[in-house]
Design a protein around this nucleic acid. Structure first.
Length: 440
RNA sequence: GGUCCCAUCGUCUAAUGGUUAGGACAUCACCCUUUCACGGUGGUAAUAUGGGUUCGAAUCCCGUUGGGAUCACCA
């Protein structure tokens, strides 16, 4: 067993959407491909916004997608560990207290912006005298804490973007502890990745500057930095990384009949040079994972395309894949799958085969001839074509004029699987009655 | 505004200095199925823009334009 370990670290502040899901899938597939482990970490450092309901939904989403996790942790349970590390970094001067209020910081940022300067914290807290600090404390101000970045280039070799280089001086020291003593995500994330032995981190491109800061945190706590890979962000049809995209929830998609494997296949192939094609199990999808095939530009995600792709996947879906979900046999499935849009549409065809259907009669005379000629069971492979030939000879009809009325009478539908295949599934008695205009 | 990233058919992308600029999805046409769908075969369709470098540029360099990310006491 390799000691490869990856993690998916959602904050339970919302449902799983297309963006989240994509990073979960990539991490999971990487673990699978390298024979490593996949860890679920609940990043619930934001008490205000975290909710149990979301956490449950995330678990349900992952389970439905088939992304099983080998290990689990939650940040709210590890605060003492974070405090331990914090004390050490504080003593080492890598963490320092600040007394500005949120409003003051906001004003500072705006000032810098209007001057055309980057809105980066000026580290004035480092110049505070003991007296000034005492004054703030007396006022009742509680400090928040920042992590002090060391000047110089931060460089890493990104799995997706190649060599990345950031000048720490242009980054700004991140706040890591709030005035109320609670942690922000940066440092706990690093401590966890270190403690749990995370070797690879795949996340969205929106994290690149965080990565730069976090690399210094890994160094500060004496840990080896994991391998990073930053995925280009998905955009909506209109280019922007729209809010709509964030609202496309996986559970909603499931509700609409989108298959888990359609989501997994589509999301891992979108933005790569591979064809977007259906995969029916995650292992074979994992075998094809190759970060070199990912482009660097932002692919557009389209719900309509996904739905279309899903239909394609359903129409080629092997019976084994649906066997435990539908109450029909393989013959039936193979007969109808080519006409489905979503799996649950099979019920409609099942009803046509096994329940009463009111036929659509457009030409009663023609249909009664067809009924008259319908051979008795048992039917064999040739029954259908010889029957059709009989009708053709008797009525002089062919092509659409011949088939369409039959189809409408027998199935009450405009289209569907080949009649030849469908007929034996419906049976003589129903076919005969329907041709005569009788619901059966 | 600082920093970083990106720009090839409608869409996702290939072509790492020399190709009739390739593939996949979509679309269109045809074929098959004596019907629709499924399936098969073909077609239409692209290098944002201006300068360089070079015998030769989608490819390298600079500018322009456009798009995105980040610069939170969110993650």
């Amino acid at each position: 067993m390799s000691d490869i370990k990856v993690r998916f670290a959602p904050s339970p502040t919302g449902y799983m959407h297309i963006g989240n899901t994509r990073t979960a899938i990539f991490n999971w597939l990487l673990a699978k491909k390298l024979g490593g482990k996949f860890m679920l970490r609940i990043d619930d450092t934001d008490k205000e916004r975290s909710r149990k309901e979301y956490e449950d939904a995330i678990r349900e989403s992952l389970t439905w997608l088939g992304l099983k996790w080998d290990e689990e942790a939650r940040q709210s349970a590890r605060v003492t560990r974070y405090q331990e590390v914090t004390a050490r970094l504080l003593a080492a001067g890598r963490i320092y207290p600040c007394y500005e209020t949120a409003e003051e910081l906001d004003i500072m940022r705006k000032k810098l912006m209007t001057k055309g300067l980057p809105p980066i914290y000026d580290r004035s807290a480092l110049k505070l005298t003991a007296e000034q600090i005492a004054l703030y404390e007396k006022e009742g101000r509680k400090p928040h804490y920042r992590f002090k970045l060391i000047d110089g280039d931060i460089v890493w070799n990104d799995l997706i973007r190649g060599e990345c280089r950031y000048d720490a001086a242009k980054l700004g020291d991140p706040v890591i502890i709030r005035a109320d003593g609670s942690y922000l995500y940066h440092l706990p994330s690093v401590i966890d990745d270190f403690d749990f032995g995370i070797t690879h981190i795949i996340r969205g491109e929106d994290h690149v500057t965080n990565t730069a800061a976090q690399i210094q945190m890994f160094e500060a706590i004496g840990g080896k930095t994991p391998v990073f890979g930053h995925l280009p962000l998905l955009t909506g049809a209109e280019g922007k990384l729209s809010k709509r995209l964030g609202s496309v929830g996986v559970l909603d998609l499931r509700e609409q009949g989108i298959e888990a494997m359609a989501i997994c296949s589509y999301l891992t192939k979108l933005g790569t040079s591979d064809a977007i094609e259906p995969f029916y199990d995650l292992q074979s999808l994992a075998d094809t994972l190759d970060f070199n095939k990912l482009g660097r530009s932002q692919p557009k995600f389209s719900e309509a395309d996904l739905a279309h792709f899903n239909t394609h996947l359903v129409r080629n879906m092997p019976y084994s894949f649906v066997a435990d979900r539908i109450d029909s046999d393989e013959t039936f499935w193979n007969a109808v799958r080519g006409n489905l849009t979503i799996v649950s549409d099979y019920k409609q065809w099942k009803n046509i085969c096994r329940c009463a259907v009111t036929p659509i009669i457009e030409d009663a005379a023609f249909l009664s001839v067809a009924a008259e000629l319908l051979p008795a069971e048992p039917w064999n492979e040739d029954t259908f074509s010889s029957w059709i030939n009989e009708i053709k000879n008797r009525t002089n009809r062919k092509g659409k004029d011949l088939f369409h009325p039959l189809r409408k009478a027998i199935t009450a539908m405009d289209d569907g699987p080949e009649l030849k295949i469908l007929l034996p599934l419906i049976g003589y008695s129903r076919v005969h009655s329907r041709l005569n205009g009788i619901a059966a």
